[in-house]
């Protein structure tokens, strides 16, 4: 009976839940409050964007979910577990700001890296490499080294790497920040396709309003010093969307709300 109860509870729980979450860094210049009193629920299948000025703790929040840093206040759970347990169970794929592919490995070799660590068989690895390279439209580049690819292709390879081991959560830290707008639009479209076809929960850090509104079901606007959540905007846009949607009135209205929220976050200074 008790078991059944917890099962039901886990099902109802959001994938990621933060309560009064805070993180204070001890630096040589004294303590820095990177994140303060963050309350946020992220549901299964959500596409959540974290947007805010630099230093607002959006990356920090992502790192707390990933258990790359430890909070100094409050609680956070991932899949109903502590972030550390979730990390040890390989619950998420993380895409960093820079593609951070290992330069001595080919594209296929880079995608195999997590698979090798997790102990997949050779045939399974090759199947998965083929599958995820297909997903990010990089088939045929298996044996290229990272430096032989453009920045956008490298970032796609790093997304493929994060997808390769079938984690349900995808954490993305400004993955397209360094790319030009044309490439970025293209990758945004592909990412939406991917999200719709895989049903993953995506947590996406950006400082582009356009990107945030275009991609998300939920937009979390944050302010800096200390990093706080100012506003959580639920998007009314349909899940299936094309680039044209950005010219529609609904899109523009949501973008305005985000911009307002960002402006409010600055008014404290």
């Amino acid at each position: 009976m008790a078991n059944m109860n917890t099962d039901v509870m886990v099902d109802n729980r959001p994938v990621i839940r933060a309560r009064n979450l805070g993180l204070v860094f001890q630096t040589t210049d004294g303590p820095v409050e990177a994140l303060k009193d963050v309350n946020l629920d992220i549901e299964q299948g959500d596409f959540v964007s974290l947007i805010g000025p630099s230093g607002c703790g959006k990356t920090t929040f992502l790192r707390l979910i990933a258990s790359l840093d430890k909070p100094t206040a409050g609680d956070i759970s991932v899949n109903g577990m502590s972030p550390e347990q979730a990390r040890l169970q390989r619950a998420y794929g993380y895409v960093f700001q820079a593609a951070s592919l290992y330069p001595w490995r080919t594209i296929a070799g880079n995608i195999k890296l997590p698979l090798e660590i997790m102990g997949f068989s050779k045939t399974e690895m090759n199947e998965r490499v083929k599958k995820v390279l297909d997903l990010v439209h990089l088939s045929g580049f298996e044996n290229k080294f990272p430096w032989q690819l453009s920045g956008g292709m490298q970032q796609r390879a790093s997304i493929a790497r994060a997808l390769s081991f079938d984690a349900d959560i995808l954490l993305m830290d400004e993955p397209f920040g360094a790319l030009d707008e044309i490439v970025r639009d293209h990758l945004n479209e592909q990412l939406l396709d991917l999200w719709q076809s895989t049903g993953k929960t995506i947590c996406f850090v950006t400082h582009s309003i356009l990107e945030a509104v275009y991609l998300s079901t939920k937009i979390v606007v944050m302010s800096n010093r200390p990093g706080k959540v100012v506003e959580v905007i639920e998007s009314s846009l349909p899940r299936e969307r094309s680039l044209d949607i950005r010219d529609g009135p609904e899109f523009i209205e949501i973008a305005q709300r985000v911009r307002m929220g960002l402006r409010m976050s600055h008014s404290h200074e």
Binding site: Q89, R90, Y94, F96, Q97, A98, M118
Partner: peptide, 13 residues
């Protein structure tokens, strides 16, 4: 740090 963090996200030994 990123190259190290990457392996940490895979819970590498």
């Amino acid at each position: 740090p990123t190259q190290m963090d990457l392996l940490k996200t895979y819970a590498a030994k």
